[in-house]
Design a protein around this nucleic acid. Structure first.
Length: 280
DNA sequence: ATAAACGCCTGACGGC
DNA sequence: TGCCGTCAGGCGTTTA
C-alpha cells in the first residue's frame, strides 16, 4: 500500500493522534499478540512476546518505508508492504473482536491497543535492539540535506541501470515505490528505461528535485485526507501519469502509455519522456 | 553487476 | 450468477 508519503502520514498520526485513537507516545506495553505467524519476521514468537511487556514508547519515526517505534530497550519496526495498515483503538474499541485481516496487536496497560491489519499478509514486524540490523542496507533518505545534486549524480553514475527499477531499489534511495517513481520520472521528463549513468548532471539534479517535489506533494495530500485506499472513499488522485493510461498528458496532450517494466505497471508520456539513445 | 521470473497473499474487476 | 485471468502503492530469492 504505502510509499514514503503514506508512511510519513501514519507516523505523524501515531505521534499526534489519529488512526482512530490517541497518540501512542508514552504508552506502556502490557502484552502482544500475533495472529498470523509469518507477520513476525524476527525474533522468534516467544522472544517477541517476552521482551515487549513493560517497555514504554519513547518516539515513533520513519526510515524509508519502515515505521520505527522506539521503546525502552528495543525498536519495533513495521513494514506495511502492499496492504498493511495500523490503527489505534481506545480501551472501549479494544474490547471488541478483531476485524478481518488483523494480523498482530500491541496491548497497552491503559487498555488501548495498536493493531496491524494486512489483507495480503506481506507486511512484517521486527523487534530489534539495534534498528540497523533491519534498516542497515537502506539508501539515503530523499530529504537528507547531505544528498546534494553532486552526490545524487555520482550515485547514478556508479550504476548502469534502468531508472525505474533503480529508483525503486530501496538500497539506492529509500522510500520510493511504483507511484512516486512514475511521477518523479514524468516531472523530470526522463524515460523509465533511461540508463542511470547516461544522465547529464542537469538531468540528475532535475530528477532529485522531482523526487522531492512529488514526495512533498504526497505528504501534503495524505495529510489532508487520511483515509485512503481500502477505506472507500471519494479520493481521486492528483497524479500526473499514474493510472492515467490513455488520458492526455498534462503537458503535451499525448496519450499516457502504460507498460510493464521490472514487473511493475509503468506509466509515462511517450512524448515528454524520450529515451536519449534509441531503445524501446 | 544487472535484470528477469517467481513466490508470497487476498480482493477487486472485467470478460465470458 | 459463477468462473477465470489479470492486476494491485513491495520485496526477497533464484535464475539467466
Amino acid at each position: 500500500m504505502p510509499e514514503l508519503p503514506e508512511v510519513e502520514t501514519i507516523v505523524r498520526a501515531l505521534n499526534l493522534g489519529g488512526r482512530g485513537g490517541d497518540p501512542i507516545i508514552g504508552q506502556v506495553v502490557r502484552s502482544a499478540e500475533v495472529l498470523w505467524n509469518r507477520t513476525l519476521a524476527a525474533p522468534s514468537l516467544p522472544d517477541f512476546l517476552f521482551r515487549l511487556p513493560g517497555q514504554k514508547i519513547d518516539a515513533v519515526t520513519r526510515r524509508g518505508k519502515f515505521i520505527v517505534i522506539h521503546l525502552d530497550r528495543d525498536n519495533l519496526l513495521i513494514h506495511l508492504r502492499m496492504s498493511g495498515d495500523l490503527r489505534v483503538e481506545t480501551k472501549l474499541d479494544a474490547e471488541r473482536p478483531y476485524l478481518p485481516h488483523d494480523r498482530a496487536a500491541i496491548h497497552f496497560v491503559d487498555g488501548s491497543r495498536l493493531v496491524f491489519n494486512d489483507p495480503r499478509k506481506f507486511g512484517r514486524l521486527w523487534l530489534a535492539a539495534d534498528p540497523l540490523s533491519v534498516l542497515g542496507k537502506l539508501g539515503p533518505e530523499p530529504f537528507d540535506e547531505a544528498l546534494k545534486p553532486e552526490v545524487f549524480f555520482r550515485m547514478l553514475q556508479s550504476h548502469h541501470r534502468q531508472l525505474k527499477p533503480l529508483l525503486m531499489d530501496q538500497s539506492f534511495i529509500a522510500g520510493l515505490g511504483n507511484i512516486y517513481t512514475d511521477e518523479s520520472l514524468f516531472l523530470a521528463k526522463l524515460h523509465p528505461l533511461e540508463i542511470s549513468n547516461q544522465l547529464t548532471f542537469t538531468q540528475a539534479a532535475n530528477l532529485l528535485d522531482a523526487v522531492r517535489e512529488v514526495l512533498k506533494e504526497g505528504i501534503r495530500r495524505n495529510g489532508s485526507s487520511i483515509d485512503w485506499v481500502y477505506r472507500g472513499g471519494e479520493f481521486q488522485n492528483d497524479f500526473r501519469v499514474y493510472q492515467r493510461t490513455g488520458q492526455p498528458c498534462l503537458i503535451c496532450g499525448k496519450q499516457i502509455e502504460k507498460r510493464m517494466i521490472g514487473q511493475r505497471g509503468t506509466h509515462f508520456c511517450p512524448q515528454c519522456q524520450q529515451l536519449s539513445k534509441n531503445r524501446n
